[in-house]
Design a protein around this nucleic acid. Structure first.
Lengths: 115, 115
DNA sequence: TTGATAAATAACCCTGTGGTTAAATATAAA
DNA sequence: TTTATATTTAACCACAGGGTTATTTATCAA
């Protein structure tokens, strides 16, 4: 994993525990202990996962007494969506039409920088 | 990285070299040597990246004499798009409207299996 | 058959990741 | 001030990831 934004995001998403945490946070902010509850792993393990998510900008953490509530931050997901957009035609169009399409867009697609 | 499909895909995408390879393949199939040309790394390194992409189902490899042409396979990207869909509202709607929205969808979102 | 080209594999190195248990820190509450 | 609760940090371990160079395999071409 390199540490450019997109790689950081994809890397953070490449773990089912972390995706489950995001799914949970999509229903509202909550504490670390509550987040950890569904998983069969230690709290420090969950804490590490949260740190990965935080580093990727996918969650934000507040402070409320001894709790550190986490909430979802979707901005990096938006970036993933934007990245994905350029490939959307590959599954939205038929393969025959795709060939024709490519002939007209080769130049525009070549050497794109923000991959 | 765990080896469920989505994790495999995200993990494969978490590297700028591999994303650049996909970007290149979006313009049409090509050989390993040609794919490797833009990168300042050895051919075996690129070969490894291709293996990762192949294992994630993001590319397919053919055979043509001593060449092994690679072509993009977008199906896993479609899965990423589907996964992403449930978070789209987080950046498409205002935060105020989001709160209201959540109150109505909490049950549907909870404990979703394919995270 | 020999030699050139394309690509993969082997063996190795270093670092990062995901988990553990034990200890430290921060805050609230008694 | 002591104790309980929430969370992080430290120290450790096993293993996978991304890179290297050297070697092997596969195919074409002379």
């Amino acid at each position: 994993m390199t540490d450019d934004r997109l790689s950081l995001t994809f890397s953070a998403l490449a773990d089912p525990t972390r995706r489950a945490i995001l799914a949970r946070l999509a229903t509202g902010e909550t504490s670390v202990t509550e987040l950890a509850e569904p998983f069969e792993m230690s709290l420090p393990a969950v804490s590490k996962h949260l740190k990965v998510l935080e580093r990727a900008g996918l969650i934000e953490r507040g402070r409320e007494a001894q709790w550190r509530p986490c909430r979802l931050q979707a901005a990096p997901l938006k970036d993933v969506d934007s990245w994905l957009a350029r490939y959307r035609r590959f599954w939205e169009e038929s393969f025959d039409r795709l060939d024709a399409y490519l002939k007209n867009t080769k130049d525009a697609e070549n050497d794109s920088k923000d991959n």
